[in-house]
């Protein structure tokens, strides 16, 4: 049994967890017995399959995905650049209070302020950037300062040029924890983008489709969109995981 679990545990445990969640969902739906409050699993999945046959579904998912990727990429590039610059004490001291403030601002404040400043199609991008950036910056900076000091000393002793140190030591050493940081940030990005789309009333987006489903009291459809959002987040995490496997072959 132990050997079987060791070999197939990676598939068995997630499958068992999903089955357990579905079972709990069914129990609650049966207990409440009001479709408006908790539709059962079969009804929800019927709505999901109906959505999968509609063009608007793919347009909405595509737009939300595009906004997620843009804000994520912007946050990652800025976070990496600024965390490298933060190796200079002056930059680090200047940025530190800014990052603290950005982390402390309530998410809803950022959302409500940004929808005043920007169009509904672009405000979710800025909103997500402002929320994700401080998290990624802290993660990247921690990865950079965590590079093995003994390797840095060895590089100095052997007079390895800075350019070689950056590309052959720093970046590869930073990559594993930076990619871990990115893997957890990407699903958070999707969550925030969808929230922002709801508030900003962004057309043809997953957020607005969830809002409409709620407005029409179509709880099963709302849950179907939620499942789609979960699947999207999971797929994006898998992509980052795949990149990590490709890039960090030496571990």
């Amino acid at each position: 049994m132990k050997k079987f679990l060791a070999k197939f545990g990676g598939v068995i445990y997630p499958f068992a967890a999903i089955c357990l969640l579905i079972a709990v969902w069914e129990v609650f739906a049966a207990a409440v017995n009001i479709e408006l409050i908790i539709p059962d699993v079969k009804t929800t999945f019927s709505h999901l399959f109906a959505l999968l046959g509609q063009k608007t579904f793919y347009k909405a998912v595509g737009n939300t995905l595009l906004r997620s990727l843009i804000s994520f990429a912007l946050a990652a590039v800025f976070a990496m650049a600024l965390s490298l610059l933060s190796l200079l004490d002056v930059i680090k001291k200047l940025l530190s209070p800014v990052i603290k403030v950005m982390r402390s601002i309530p998410t809803m404040s950022i959302i409500l302020l940004t929808v005043i400043w920007l169009k509904p199609s672009t405000s979710p991008i800025l909103i997500t950037f402002l929320i994700i950036f401080p998290i990624m910056y802290s993660g990247f900076f921690s990865a950079i300062t965590g590079v093995d000091k003994e390797l840095i000393e060895m590089s100095r002793t052997y007079k390895v040029p800075i350019k070689n140190r950056i590309f052959q030591l720093y970046l590869p050493q930073i990559m594993p924890s930076a990619l871990d940081n990115m893997q957890s940030s990407i699903s958070f990005t999707v969550k925030v983008i969808i929230s922002a789309e709801v508030i900003a009333q962004t057309r043809t987006s997953m957020g607005i489709m969830m809002q409409l489903a709620r407005g029409y009291l179509e709880t099963a459809e709302l849950l179907a969109w939620t499942l789609a959002a979960i699947a999207l987040s999971y797929l994006l995490e898998l992509v980052v995981y795949g990149i990590k496997k490709l890039v960090v072959r030496w571990k």
Binding site: L151, Y158, L169, W250
Partner: peptide, 23 residues
Amino acid sequence: YIFQSQRLVPNLTVYKNLEYVLS
């Protein structure tokens, strides 16, 4: 310098570790 701990760059092969100091 031969250090107490080997201080080989973990993301470089043995060959690349030697090449690293020969820029």
